[in-house]
Design a protein around this nucleic acid. Sequence first.
RNA 1: GGCCCCAUCGUCUAGAGGCCCAGGACGCCUGGUUUUCAUCCAGGUAACACCGGUUCGACUCCGGUUGGGGCCGCCA
Length: 531
Amino acid sequence: MAEKEQTNRTNIRVRFAPSPTGAFHLGSARAALFNYLFAKRYGGKFILRIEDTDAERSKKEWEENIFESMKWLGMEWDEGPNLNFEKDGKKYIGDYGPYRQSERKEIYARYLKQLIKEEKAYYCFCSKEELESYKQYAMSQGLPPVYPNKCRDLDPKEVQKKLEEKKPFLIRFKCPKGKKIIVKDAVRGEIEFDSSLLGDFSLSKGFEFPLYNFVCAVDDYEMNITDIVRGEDHIPNTPKQILIQEALGFPKIQYAHLPLVLGQARQKLSKREGALPISDYKDQGYLPEALINFIVFLGWNPGNEKEIFSLESLAKEFSIEKVQKSGAIFNPQKLEWLNGFYIRKKTLKELARLCVPYLEERGLIKRNEKMIRPKDELLPETSYLVTETKENIFDDYLEKAVSLYQERIKKLSEIGDLVDFLFVKDLDYPAEMLKWKKMASNQELEDSLNKCLKLLSSIEEKSFNKEILEKLLLREAEEMPDRGYLLWPLRVALTGKQASAGPIDIAAVLGKEKTVQRIKEAIEKARSIVQ
RNA sequence: GGCCCCAUCGUCUAGAGGCCCAGGACGCCUGGUUUUCAUCCAGGUAACACCGGUUCGACUCCGGUUGGGGCCGCCA
């Protein structure tokens, strides 16, 4: 039933309204995502509004962080500041209407004056200290900590006098007593509040600095918002906003309060608990598709056993009715798994391109306009076949290197430690590592390495590929009591590591010259082991 | 303290009165593939917070208890 109602609704307009007082994190991403999906699912508009009424805490850099993170995740907005993309054949660039609250002050002042004129709001000249001490007292008495309405019935003459004296004031809402306020919530049903417990809450500091609940109600109306999807930490604000809407004669809005994302300690996600900025996840090598897939399952599921969703498929299958009521604990292991899953799904070309910044950062590759190549001159320059596509530059060697580890990495940032041996000249590893666990003597090790050397040297440069190597090496290895006798020392010789991709694949990527050279170096090392 | 919200495996969750001595995914464990690590495949581990009702029958409905969470700003 509810489903039907939703589907039939038209002209849905939702907003994501972050305040730029910190980075765009997991919780923000989820609120944004659910709004985005709700809009997409029902063919509505997704609006971005910047709630920067707190001038002191709001910073341009956080605003940038929000824009960049949302675009990186693929959630582009239909209306809002900093538009820069194409949609339906139309190009949007730069700002589009005043969507920052700091740019909308005249609008708020207008409504504030209206409320005062209609005696639905009044001036309050109480001091901070006064209010704080009253609140302490009320709480100690077990009373609701609401404003005692001291200035509510101030003599108009006195008000006039104080205004002329330029005494700082607050504008308070005349909250009706004993009124039942019902919030209709798409995920929770009806939530009832008693207006008496709200008190005469504040709307604005003077006319210049309007406060959250007030600007929120005004903007939602001014922007024709039909549905509000936000975190459940906003439930207590909702009756206040409804009261303001009613006082101003605004139409009703539909609500959907999302459960909170919790940290391991079951508390509202904090920085300590992995509420990292989305930009940090990006830097660590998480993929946007993994993050989206992960985030949407924090409080939503399709009702069947499907687990993998892209932003596009979610836009078709998302439904607000399936949103969970209880808070979800953020589980980093599942994110890792999903990220690995999406990495394995990438084409080699895409993955190689994504790995470039990590390899570069680690000093393994050098990049200029035309070429990406290993830092050390490992191979003749012609080996680094430069392929140039429209937007990216990468080479064949890089793709091969990445292909060796595509199934082994969970984050892009891990690539460096795994492939470094393919990009540096000298390997540094203890000689003992060469000796396989089942080898009884150093002689066995030397024999094994010599066998490898002989075999590989016999292959012609142009036939030095995986198929041929496999045929020759495996045949030889099979004759030993265990393949490890031949393959373990070879792995260590080529990589200097105990764990790696298959040594045959590695030899094929490294090429004959380098492979043979590394085996020779390993033989030298093996001889140095003291018996 | 007041108001509000929530409650199925360790975690994310399926479950709209019999299909459930509860299904899937991550994690963990075992086995297979493998020289290693990972991938992949097969199997296993593990939950309806508690107490009352309603009902022929309750994970599902109602009430209470307990537990957890959110909010109580001249922040948003």
